[in-house]
């Protein structure tokens, strides 16, 4: 059985599949124009049709992001500065009858927040655990056209914080809200290098949901029941 994982066997199967594809396409794989077309597309990654919806100035993008995120059942607050975040988070937890406990990763922007300004707020760091009720992460970016958060994995923002706790609070800097996916993809390329990605990029558009029982929409399937977004600097 484990024989099937033998690299030599894998190479044989690979050759079979590629040979069949080439026979069907009537090519041999060495044609220079085809190779150039592929190399060119991978290098130039043309953008295609980008909707006008998100082509706005900074204020317009933030406003659209808010409208779209609320339309998919996220809640959203704006704060002027980092110093205002603890108060906002604490208020949100109180209003939703949630314990004053949050957990986040090692993101420098989160470490710098003066959480201690809220005396009752307990802050821990690390990946999400069974007992974690509220996960806090800092978004890499946002996309105004659909109210979508862009979250990247790593020690700074462990992916489990986005999925395991019942409540997810995501912070995003107003300047990181782009109009469209293409803009944020370009920022990912600039940050991680061309052709490179972090292990996980999560595009999150609202809290978890399911319509699998009689097409009735219910929030909170397997991921967070609540998604609260805090825009910083708007």
């Amino acid at each position: 059985m484990t024989d099937i994982l033998d690299p030599a066997k894998n190479a044989e199967r690979r050759n079979t599949v590629l040979a069949t594809a080439r026979r069907s396409l009537k090519v041999d794989g060495d044609e220079a124009p085809r190779r150039a077309a592929v190399a060119d597309r991978l290098a130039s990654h043309p953008a295609g049709v980008v909707p006008a919806r998100g082509q706005l100035d900074t204020k317009g993008r933030v406003d659209l992001f808010e409208t779209m995120a609320k339309a998919v059942d996220a809640t959203l607050a704006r704060v002027a500065a980092t110093a205002d975040v603890p108060g906002e988070v604490s208020d949100f937890l109180r209003q939703n009858n949630l314990p004053q406990q949050i957990r986040h990763g090692s993101d420098a922007r989160l470490e710098k927040i003066p959480w201690e300004s809220q005396k009752t707020l307990e802050v821990s760091t690390g990946i999400a655990e069974d007992a974690t009720t509220v996960g806090v992460s800092h978004a890499f970016g946002g996309v105004a056209e659909s109210g979508t958060l862009i979250l990247t994995s790593g020690d700074d923002n462990p992916t489990t914080l986005n999925f395991l706790p019942e409540t997810h609070i995501a912070l995003i800097d107003a300047k990181d809200i782009d109009g469209d996916y293409e803009s944020v993809i370009q920022r990912l390329r600039d940050h991680y290098g061309a052709g490179e990605m972090p292990r996980t990029v999560n595009m999150v558009t609202g809290p978890s949901r399911s319509a699998d029982i009689e097409q009735t929409l219910l929030l909170g399937a397997h991921g967070p029941r609540r998604l609260h977004i805090v825009i910083v600097g708007a």
């Binding site: 990946i127 990605m197 292990r199 595009m203």
Partner: peptide, 30 residues
């Protein structure tokens, strides 16, 4: 942009997740 609109009528599905390889040296999960 055409997938979720055609499927469920959402602009985007809730979770669109891009996975590239296994856990990295600085990854605490995955």
């Amino acid at each position: 942009r055409v997938l979720a609109r055609s499927a469920t009528g959402q602009d985007m599905s809730v979770y669109t997740t891009f996975s590239t390889g296994p856990r990295r040296p600085d990854d605490p999960d995955g």
